[in-house]
C-alpha cells in the first residue's frame, strides 16, 4: 500500500476512535441520568415513593386536611384487614416485631399499633425502617400519621422500646382491596455514612 494511503487511513482511524469515545462517555453519563429519569417516571405514574407522598407523608398541613376529609367520610360498615410484616436487613442482630400481627379497621378511623424493637448488636445503632405496602396500588390510600419510619431511630446498646404507628385507611380505597399488608424492613445505617 502506498505510504500516503496508509497515513490517510491512520488519520481517519484516529478520528473514528475519537468520535466513538464521545459516545462512550455520553453513555456513561446516560447510565447516571437514568437515576433522575426513574424518579420522573415514578412521579408521573404515582408509584414508589411518590405513592407515599400522595398519602401525605411529607406535608403535615396537607395531611391534617386529608385526615379530616377521610374521617368525615368514614365507613363503619366496611372492614379492612391490615397485616404487619417485620424484616431485618442483611442479618442485622435485632429483635423487631409488631405487637399485633394484624388488625381489622374501618376506613376513615384512626388506629394505633405498637412495634417492639431491641438492639442486640452490642453497639449503638442508628436504624432506619423502610415501609412497603402490598398491593402496591393501596399505597396512596394508606396514610401514616405517626410512624417510627419517618425518622432515623437511635438505639443504644441493648436498648429496647415500643414504637407506635398511627394510621388511617382512606374510604377511597378500591373495593377490590380487603387486605393490606404493611412490611417494614429495618436497616442498620452504619454502612451508610451519616449525612
Amino acid at each position: 500500500m502506498e505510504p500516503e494511503v496508509i497515513a490517510k487511513t491512520r488519520v481517519s482511524n484516529k478520528k473514528t476512535a475519537g468520535k466513538l469515545l464521545i459516545i462512550v462517555v455520553a453513555m456513561f453519563g446516560f447510565g447516571y441520568a437514568l437515576v433522575p429519569l426513574y424518579d420522573v417516571v415514578c412521579q408521573v405514574l404515582g408509584i414508589g415513593r411518590f405513592a407515599d407522598i400522595e398519602s401525605g407523608k411529607y406535608d403535615p398541613k396537607a395531611q391534617e386536611q386529608l385526615v379530616k376529609d377521610m374521617a368525615a367520610n368514614k365507613d363503619l360498615t366496611r372492614n379492612v384487614t391490615v397485616e404487619f410484616i417485620t424484616v431485618l436487613n442483611g442479618g442485622m442482630k435485632w429483635e423487631f416485631k409488631a405487637l399485633q400481627k394484624e388488625v381489622v379497621v374501618h376506613p376513615g378511623v384512626m388506629s394505633t399499633v405498637d412495634f417492639y424493637a431491641k438492639n442486640l448488636t452490642g453497639r449503638d445503632v442508628i436504624a432506619q425502617a423502610v415501609p412497603r405496602i402490598l398491593p402496591g396500588n393501596a399505597t396512596k390510600y394508606f396514610t401514616k400519621i405517626e410512624c417510627f419510619c419517618f425518622t432515623q431511630q437511635i438505639f443504644k446498646k441493648g436498648e429496647a422500646r415500643n414504637m407506635p404507628l398511627r394510621f388511617m385507611v382512606s374510604p377511597a380505597l378500591p373495593k377490590s382491596i380487603n387486605t393490606i399488608t404493611l412490611s417494614y424492613t429495618f436497616f442498620d445505617t452504619q454502612p451508610v455514612a451519616l449525612k
Partner: peptide
C-alpha cells in the same frame, strides 16, 4: 458504559456513602 456506571454506583453506595440503591438512605 452503562454497566460500568451501575457498578460504580454500587461502589459508591458501599464505600462512599451514596444511596443509589440503598433503601436505608
Amino acid at each position: 458504559p452503562v454497566l460500568a456506571g451501575v457498578v460504580t454506583m454500587m461502589l459508591t453506595d458501599k464505600h462512599f456513602g451514596t444511596s443509589f440503591f440503598d433503601a436505608a438512605g
